[in-house]
Computed example of a mutant assay.
Amino acid sequence: MAAHRGDGLAGLLAREVVFQGRERGLRLHFPMLVAAGFGGFVVWQMGSPASGPLTAATEGSFLMDSLGGQTVPKSRTVWSLRNIVAAIVMIVVVAVALLLSAPRRGDQWTNMNQPFWAIRLLAIAGLTMRDILGCTTVVLIASGLVVASRLVIVSL
């Protein structure tokens, strides 16, 4: 919720999360938490508290003259299907960007896509890369969804 405010509260909240995490012995990545906190700014004007659509929907606002003396209902701005889809797409894009920029311990996730680490084991077992590629691809997709959903939750 704090990430949707325009006063910099997201950065301060991320800083406090890092301090609280360190007191509890957690190893948190401060730049990633700040990026996740500020990731909410991408969609904050797409939501119901957006100042532009609220002003356009308010009777007697300064925008009425430029809108031909009418108001624009929120159902045509904030709650339109186009805006909802755009907000969902932007949330997914931010989550993927956070996923791709997240610090890694080695490169285990992408190794599931090209499992060259398993060549020696395959030779010992008498298997080929084709025998395990389907399984490692499923692990790649499943673990990617778990990590991406976790980053989405952190960024909210």
Rank of each mutant, 00 (worst) to 15 (best):
A3L: 02
A3P: 03
G6M: 11
D7I: 10
D7E: 12
D7Y: 07
G8H: 07
G8V: 07
A10S: 12
A10I: 05
A10E: 08
G11F: 01
G11W: 01
L12R: 07
L13G: 00
A14S: 03
A14T: 00
R15P: 01
R15K: 09
E16M: 01
V17P: 00
R22A: 00
G25N: 04
L26K: 02
L26P: 02
R27Y: 02
L28R: 01
F30W: 03
F30G: 01
M32P: 00
M32Y: 00
M32S: 01
L33M: 08
V34Y: 00
V34G: 00
A35Q: 04
A35H: 02
A36N: 02
G37R: 00
G37V: 00
G37E: 00
G37I: 00
F38C: 06
V42T: 13
Q45F: 15
M46R: 14
M46L: 15
S48V: 14
S48C: 13
P49A: 11
G52Q: 15
L54I: 15
L54C: 15
T55K: 13
A56S: 15
T58Q: 15
M64G: 10
S66V: 14
G68Q: 11
G69H: 06
T71Q: 07
T71L: 03
P73R: 09
P73G: 11
K74A: 04
T77H: 03
V78F: 04
S80D: 06
S80E: 02
S80Y: 04
R82Y: 09
N83Q: 06
N83F: 02
I84V: 09
V85I: 08
A86T: 12
A86S: 13
A87C: 10
I88F: 05
M90L: 11
I91K: 04
I91V: 08
I91G: 04
V94H: 03
A95G: 12
V96C: 09
V96A: 08
V96Y: 06
A97W: 11
L99E: 11
S101I: 06
A102W: 07
A102N: 06
A102V: 06
A102E: 09
A102D: 11
R104S: 14
R105E: 13
R105I: 14
D107T: 13
Q108I: 12
Q108C: 13
W109H: 14
N111Y: 07
N113R: 13
Q114Y: 14
W117C: 04
A118W: 04
A118I: 05
A118V: 10
I119T: 11
R120N: 08
L121K: 09
L121I: 07
L122I: 08
A123V: 02
A125D: 12
L127C: 10
R130D: 12
R130T: 10
I132D: 03
L133M: 09
L133C: 05
G134S: 08
C135K: 05
T137Y: 06
V138A: 15
V139L: 11
I141K: 06
I141Y: 07
I141P: 05
A142D: 12
S143N: 12
G144C: 04
G144S: 04
L145Q: 06
L145T: 10
V146Y: 09
